[in-house]
Design a protein around this nucleic acid. Structure first.
Lengths: 390, 390
DNA sequence: AACTTTTGATGGAGCGCTTCATTGCACGCT
DNA sequence: AGCGTGCAATGAAGCGCTCCATCAAAAGTT
């Protein structure tokens, strides 16, 4: 009727009158309306795209049982007699019936999907997190849906809203920046939320964290254990939390090592592929007795870049200077000298996040937010330890 | 009541009788049931996680309008008087109302999400595809949900079912292997499906493809244009379609170049990080006059591995032998010598897939399946062309 | 055999929304 | 004033499912 009204150039009300109270409508208008009806009568049939999933009603009809029984066959098969169950399943098979998850979660008030919003799918860590979350979710017979906010706050918010409106069972968020607003947004209606890889300190939700202080500590400690005595820490100038923590870990390792070990801290303007040259300039500018014999880069990408720049400057790695990065970033796997790194256990983080989510769902009102700190591990390769004998 | 029955160890029917026709129930059973009721009475209150999203009814009440009007305010704001609209919006704001997408798509029969099932999120190409699809979907005011099948057919099927049951608007599939079964599964009920990066030849759905023949052609042609005359093509032994096509492209380029150019084809047992050594052995085993001066690897990972092995064997790249890969894989970005490659335009592929999906939705019954072939592009870096002057 | 109890199946209410025929009302025209 | 019209709002039907009180028949018990 709305279409007819549009086509006839009158309001819906007029069409209604034309049909039910024709005497109220001026003859000319009446004619217009009837013409429109006539015309649409023809074109109406064709634009049905025939997207016709069978419903439980059809399954019930074919199986010769009631809708309730079909529902039971699906969700509580133990309450259905084997013979009946078989009939229902045959009907489902025959019709190719796939339950409508929307109707399910509407009626049941529960969903079996969890949402994961990730800041950057291009980064190995987050792909690993997704993989771990996926695995853990599957083990709990839940589905995991992933969205990539691509380092964009607006997208991140949009995706949180999306999951909220889909009434997912819970959301795992690997945020770009302080996720406070996002947390509020999601928790407003009690949707369980776990934040991964960001410590907002407020502890008003469950959190899965990397022990970034330990990342730095493991790295520096490794170099010291190798007998290196003049360490360099290279990171970017900005104030990102993980960077500061890693730096703190490096400092602690150096402090613990006592006076025999020195530390130089170098800054770059970024951690990308091309910042190695600048670092090497700074290194070479140092007086020989302060020149580092070991260098820890805040990321693998930066580390690889430094290795290349050092080699370009005629220094050998690891003989003259041992180099390592952090993150176990796949983008750095192809380096000339395989890079020693501190590996973040992304899969474990993702799995832990899903477990926390499940706990929050189960515990309900009694839930107390928890924080899981996943320990990184040292991965020694040639850039620090030299080529292994073959 | 189901809970009570479970707790009392009787059937639901018995509980019903106990409540409505107690005389029909044996006293002992009656007592059990009442005990169970008593017990659950206490624990019932606490496990309500208070996950209470306001519904449109509440919004309507607060705004002092009917539910229909709230719906109109949301979906057809132009049909609502500004003053009313403002009241409704204020109520939505005040209650923190988020529409229930499940109910929406149930009632409206339409969903605004599309699903993307990807074979390997660890691979840059698919991350790019996801990014491109995301962008195009956002532009059409649709949401994109991603799942990672992680090279596992069972997971892929599970994810297709998931999207099917969520009644998404359409599915984009980047399959592991021949997606015939998956296609059947999804199309059975008319869900639009676009397959990316796999050509099954049957053309019973829309497809977005890389011109893999051209990938090989561009690569070999680049080497020939650089003046190289003895090319090597390195690929794994298996029979994957894209590999064969790339090989065909290489052959064509060599053929076109005429008799001055030779081609050696080498096989590896895989394309991973450690297969370079073997390739180099094969290369060195060739008589000097047949030894290649240019090498095209089927993937970047293999290419980087070859570069390292060559350097390890004392050969220089690109002087002695130019090397390149294919794919523009991020995992190869960190190589000692930046690797020339043929770039697959993943973002463009993802965007094209979403556009095809949209077209299929719009065209409905009249839709004819289309095939979009996205052209790869050559990315020249140092491993073939030498270090650019600074 | 006469009863109680259990099992297995039923059918209807309701989840939160969209859609749309219907209506009340105000406006403009004669 | 009175008719015809358009606008804005209403309210009920129904989307596909789950849940559950209820019941008929089968299975036990005495």
């Amino acid at each position: 009727m709305v279409e007819v009204a549009a086509s006839a150039g009158v309001s819906v009300g007029t069409v209604s009158n034309a049909l039910n109270h024709p005497h109220r409508v001026r003859p000319a208008t009446l004619a217009k309306v009837h013409a429109a009806i006539e015309q649409l009568g023809f074109s109406r049939a064709e634009n049905r795209p025939a997207r016709t999933n069978p419903s439980m009603v059809q399954v019930a009809t074919v199986a010769g049982v009631s809708v309730g029984t079909v529902s039971n066959a699906l969700n509580h098969p133990e309450q259905v007699r084997p013979a009946t169950l078989a009939r229902v399943r045959a009907a489902i098979e025959q019709l190719g019936f796939t339950p409508n998850a929307n109707a399910r979660s509407l009626a049941g008030g529960e969903s079996r999907t969890i949402g994961l919003v990730v800041v950057d799918l291009g980064n190995t860590l987050f792909v690993d997190i997704a993989r771990g979350a996926q695995r853990e979710a599957a083990a709990r017979r839940e589905s995991l849906l992933v969205t990539n906010s691509d380092r964009d706050d607006a997208q991140q918010d949009a995706h949180l809203d999306l999951f909220e409106s889909a009434r997912v069972r819970g959301v795992v968020l690997a945020p770009l920046s302080d996720p406070f607003a996002g947390i509020q947004r999601v928790r407003r209606h009690g949707t369980p939320l776990v934040v991964v890889n960001y410590d907002d300190g407020r502890q008003d939700c469950c959190t899965v964290l990397v022990d970034n202080e330990r990342v730095g500590y493991l790295a520096a400690r490794h170099m010291i254990d190798l007998g290196r005595r003049r360490l360099a820490w290279v990171s970017e100038l900005n104030d990102l939390q993980p960077v500061r923590e890693r730096q703190a870990g490096v400092r602690r390792a150096v402090r613990e090592a006592g006076r025999g070990v020195d530390l130089v801290e170098l800054d770059t303007e970024g951690v990308g592929e091309n910042h190695g040259d600048h670092v090497v300039e700074e290194v070479l500018a140092l007086p020989a007795r302060r020149r580092p014999d070991a260098l820890v880069a805040v990321t693998d990408i930066l580390g690889v870049s430094v290795v290349e720049a050092l080699q370009g400057a005629g220094l050998s790695v690891p003989e003259d200077i041992a180099v390592m990065g952090c993150d176990h970033d796949a983008r750095a796997w192809g380096g000339a000298v395989p890079l020693t790194t501190v590996r973040l256990e992304g899969e474990e983080m993702g799995a832990a996040a899903v477990r926390l989510l499940a706990a929050e769902v189960e515990e309900g009102i009694d839930h107390v937010h928890r924080r899981v700190v996943v320990q990184p591990s040292l991965l020694v390769r040639e850039s620090s330890a030299g080529r292994a004998p073959r």
